[in-house]
């Protein structure tokens, strides 16, 4: 019985709404990673802060994607922490870019609360946190 519950808990993070989250986080991982790879290799000097933040965002997205796919309680906690960090990141960077754009001659995924990405960078971590909390309640 306990074993079955664990199995359900493992699969639970990536089925149902989790499947949608994994897909969208996967897309964002690819988007942020390729964007930052291009920016860091071709134009690092223009806006180092912005481009390093893009790279950091890519790492956070990748961690969340992998955690959701792997499942289990430890992965759930890691994903929860990453979603919280992502939410903090998008709020801080979003506010920062609005107040002082001099460090950001070029935009990042999190600029202006992610308006260039349909505000998904702001909505995603909220959806992720809600889903991960519900997954724990279910387990």
């Amino acid at each position: 019985m306990a074993e079955r519950a664990t199995a359900a808990g493992r699969a639970g993070l990536r089925t149902g709404p989790g499947r949608l989250l994994v897909t969208v986080y996967g897309v964002f991982t690819v988007a942020a990673a390729s964007r930052s790879a291009y920016q860091l290799s071709a134009r690092f000097d223009e806006a180092p802060v912005a481009y390093l933040l893009s790279a950091l965002a890519a790492v956070v997205y990748a961690l969340i994607t992998v955690s959701l796919v792997r499942g289990g309680e430890r992965a759930r906690r890691l994903a929860f922490g990453c979603c919280a960090a992502e939410l903090a990141g998008v709020l801080v960077v979003g506010t920062w870019t609005l107040l002082d754009s001099s460090e950001f001659p070029d935009t990042t995924v999190w600029s202006g609360y992610g308006y260039g990405y349909l505000f998904l960078p702001l909505l995603l971590p909220v959806a992720g946190l809600l889903w991960l909390r519900r997954a724990r309640a279910a387990a």
């Binding site: 499947r19 969208v24 897309v27």
Partner: peptide, 11 residues
């Protein structure tokens, strides 16, 4: 399920 449809819509 409906979440498959939602995923396609998102894509």
């Amino acid at each position: 399920t409906r979440w498959g449809s939602a995923t396609v819509a998102a894509g």
